[in-house]
């Protein structure tokens, strides 16, 4: 009996903390003039959503945000997977030093680094464009990705790769066919973590993008100043939907990969 009540209490707590706010936001976005002390809104309509979807800037920035996020995730995998593998299963000289250097970007205030890098990027000609923003987004993401993936590799015995080599698979093939499937949980967490971090960058994007690269967070502020709360709510729902879109994208790729893996 007590167990049952605890369960109910926990579920309702979870609901009110995590699900209710999102539902509320969504509900808010389809209301009109819902002010205190009204318990229910006067009218329901899609005016806020019409405002949002009639803004061409939003379409462009939605695309830019997702594009930058996905490229940042892919670059993270390309750099962090080999690095984490070498740190975990290899025995490079100065392992601790390398690990510390890889962690530095999150120990030193990112803003300080970004200011310096901005000058370099201007000289290189990658300031004020998407490439520069993608590069600068690696700064707050890569250290986490290496951490998460290294922890994943640490759990896997080096014997797996040895076993598949003695069966005759090259080291590269062993990586894709044996290690990667075992790494999927870590790859999932690293991916979503990196995407969400990239998604919420405001200052870095603003400095390096120079206002030319408009991601959703950059539009968020002007929208927030608008008097219409329904529009702000709608915008927030849209923002929250992006990680879900990313999850769907990632899960579909993983599904295709598994299908490929299971061919006889």
């Amino acid at each position: 009996m007590r167990k049952k009540w605890t369960k109910i209490l926990l579920s309702s707590l979870l609901f009110f903390l995590f699900i209710f706010p999102v539902l509320f936001l969504f509900f808010k976005s389809i209301t009109f003039g819902w002010n205190w002390p009204d318990i229910l809104p006067h009218t329901l309509n899609l005016r806020a959503w019409t405002v949002i979807f009639n803004d061409p800037l939003i379409y462009r920035s939605l695309f830019t945000t997702v594009f930058i996020g996905v490229v940042v995730v892919i670059l993270n995998y390309l750099i962090a997977l080999p690095a984490a593998y070498a740190l975990s299963h290899g025995n490079p000289r100065g392992k601790t030093l390398i690990e510390t250097i890889l962690l530095l970007p999150i120990l030193v205030p990112v803003l300080a680094i970004a200011m310096g890098l901005h000058l370099v990027m201007i000289r290189l000609g990658i300031a004020d464009n998407t490439a520069g923003v993608i590069l600068i987004h690696l700064l707050p993401t890569l250290p986490y990705a290496v951490r998460v993936l290294k922890a994943g590799f640490d759990r896997i015995s080096p014997d797996w790769v040895k076993q598949s080599r003695t069966i005759g698979t090259s080291q590269a093939a062993a990586f894709f066919i044996v290690l990667l499937p075992m790494m999927l949980p870590s790859i999932r967490s690293a991916g979503i973590l990196v995407f969400v971090i990239s998604l919420s960058q405001y200052v870095l994007t603003a400095i390096i993008g120079g206002g030319q690269v408009t991601t959703l967070p950059l539009l968020y502020y002007p929208f927030f100043n608008s008097a219409n709360e329904a529009v702000v709510a709608g915008f927030s729902v849209l923002f929250a939907a992006l990680p879900i879109l990313f999850l769907i994208l990632m899960e579909s790729s993983i599904y295709l990969y598994k299908q490929w893996l299971h061919r006889l």
């Binding site: 014997d159 797996w160 040895k162 076993q163 003695t166 069966i167 075992m182 893996l261």
Partner: peptide, 13 residues
């Protein structure tokens, strides 16, 4: 071919 102490069958296959 070497067989290890553990069977090391690939768990996802």
């Amino acid at each position: 071919v070497l067989m290890f102490q553990e069977p090391l069958l690939f768990p996802h296959l």
